[in-house]
Nucleic acid binder design. Structure first.
Lengths: 223, 223, 223, 223
DNA sequence: GATGAATGAGCCTTCATTCAT
DNA sequence: CATGAATGAAGGCTCATTCAT
């Protein structure tokens, strides 16, 4: 049974993978775009290290090797700069998943891939992960619609995949998909947070397999 | 088989339930203690509303109905004030659990109680919960040992109970207790965060039963 | 014919002489009130010297011998501070005039006194005069109602006196009081501005007599 | 008695009507000159609207439809740009007056024309008038000699005309020409400022006649 | 014990101006 | 010529904390 492009989970994923309209200015010049990328990377490092509220634009500028005022050529405010980071990176994650998901035959494999990629993405970009999981996600302040949507997409994708898996009989039908999604996301997120804050488990990659196996076992339709 | 006071999980719980040394001064005066309680309650509200970093001592003072400088008669700094909140409340939670846990015969029931009480405590004190789950817990800033210990106690208690449950044959022995604890804590925490940020599930109490059931089902030793 | 308290010009003058509600905070302490006075005096000097837009709060603070942030204990912004100056001083001028005007028998004498006191007040407080005549008065920015009202009172008082003088037969009835008022105010103001900007006439007091005489001659009812 | 070119008032007027050396570069290109004119017009509008100190070069550029940095191809600084405006326009006013004044037989008529043209010029160019009467004229900042001279020319021309009129017996000889000039200029200026700030008199043209008549009556030599 | 008052350190943001292309 | 891009220099304002009364 081939996937239809109209499968809800694919549609949601496809939209989430779209690089939403960039918040800052969009310079035409090649060199400028490069500077902007470097700025975002530098900001990620500084914000992850000091926290958004306590981080200083001066430190971001220094880290990026540009003038403080130049930051404002790209982003209108400190918050706009901070919010751009999770938006872009999450879109990348969703896009990468979209690219690799097609060949997999079952929703089970696909969901497993999604969770695994999420952990790997965090492990490969710990600064970004700190920012997302410790600053942005729990932030009471997310009034910015674009950030909120990016973050919410995560849950939406999982719920949609769970639904599709249930429909196909791969996943238990007796579990509310929101409940399952909460367990999946909460477990993965908590593992990441523990790793970020305490450095445990030391080998995050090694711990991911058993974690994902256990979670998949929980939701797998029996027999 | 009666509990021994030397059971690791009871020992850990007993220590966690001790009100750790208060950070501020400890005036003997009755009236002073009352003011201090009010101050802490006011601070909880303000910090939950604005976030610790953005909250102003002036707002806390106004909410408490006292002068800004008077706050410093009780707590040496804004952070000390902020940190005192989770410390006290978590100790209360642990103590309340300690009081009710004894009569329960199985670790399964006890763990179930712990998770349920955690959710109830958050539901009954949403301001405090915002502060703990959205501000303190993910905080990169927790260098303050006492806060960190209070928070860590949560995980320690669960791991110890899981171990004891495994030892008694109630819980699956093939699951690493840290992995199980991560799932339990992550799931509960994520449910609370979603409730705090999005107001869903609307009826948190009603959602807690199925969630705990599912989680317990996951770790229960088969037959 | 004794003045009635209900004479329009007296009523307007009486209101204008009221010290309008102070814009800044109103500390109870005696010492604080003194500081506030000194602050206003220092601000007058700095604003007159550098212009409001270019003046720095740091310079005002230095001139007043207090910390920059302390200024904000008294006034909420630079503009509020700047605007308070003309408001207070104009009210003083109006009040002083109100005190001295009663004994004078004719409107002619009274108007002459008003114009003379205006010039004297400026001569005695050249910093304040610079601020009022060169910064505030021509300011497009006066959206602050209180400042605008204080300044407008000046014209209102003159027009009302002209009307009363006409009614009494002292002033020519064929002149529109607004036209006359424009000539009176414009002439006096222009003389002051020239004095402030160019230092001419060198002896402002000596030049005032002839100026006022000429103006009064213009509006005096013939014979 | 024909005017002699050596009449002081004519000599002063002639010099004032010369377009003083332009502050910016003087590109020979036709197109460039056009751009410069448009830039000056745009700057007039922006400066009149926001005030020189608060106006931003970026806004001027946007209004002129050119790049910010291009402004600097024409004028070396914001102040140079701002000052160029009154200089050029005043020179135009003086030149226009010079053109029309010759046929008039009496100094009285000539002075009347000068005052009327001044008002008309302001009414026809309210943006420029705001700039001149509310920003430049009272400016403490006019250290720029050329601006100051342009503005001062106004008074010089009037004083010279008053002197010539007195010499000819048209104007009262007992009035100090500086005093008379102050009344004339102050009255006209004040009428204009009131119009600019308050929109009154609504019909400026209609109000000008009586005002000028009254002023001329004041200085006219008695029969 | 309680507070009104004062402050120093700091930070985000603005903007006129420069310059390589 | 024209400009996009970059920046240095500032400045208004905030706020946690201190202290004399």
């Amino acid at each position: 049974m081939p996937d239809s492009i109209t499968d809800p989970w694919l549609e949601i994923l496809g939209q989430a993978a779209q690089p939403h309209q960039d918040g800052g200015s969009d310079p035409k010049q090649q060199r400028s775009r490069q500077r902007k990328r470097e700025l975002l990377a530098a900001a990620t490092r500084v914000f992850a290290r000091d926290g958004i509220a306590k981080a200083k634009m001066a430190d971001v500028a220094k880290e990026a090797g540009i003038a403080v005022s130049s930051i404002y050529d790209y982003y209108p405010s400190k918050e706009a700069l901070a919010y751009e980071i999770p938006i872009q990176r999450l879109a990348h994650l969703y896009a990468a998943f979209l690219e690799q998901v097609a060949p997999l035959p079952t929703m089970r494999d696909r969901l497993r891939l999604f969770l695994t990629m999420t952990v790997d993405h965090a492990r490969d970009n710990p600064d970004w992960a700190r920012l997302l999981y410790l600053e942005i996600w729990p932030s009471v302040l997310i009034e910015e619609a674009r950030v909120r949507r990016s973050v919410d997409d995560f849950g939406r994708i999982i719920v949609a995949m769970l639904r599709e898996g249930s429909r196909r009989g791969e996943f238990r039908a007796d579990l509310d998909p929101h409940l399952s999604a909460t367990i999946l996301m909460g477990s993965i997120t908590h593992m990441l947070i523990t790793w970020l804050l305490y450095g445990r488990p030391q080998d995050l990659a090694a711990a991911t397999g058993p974690m994902v196996d256990t979670l998949m076992g929980l939701i797998a339709s029996p027999r």
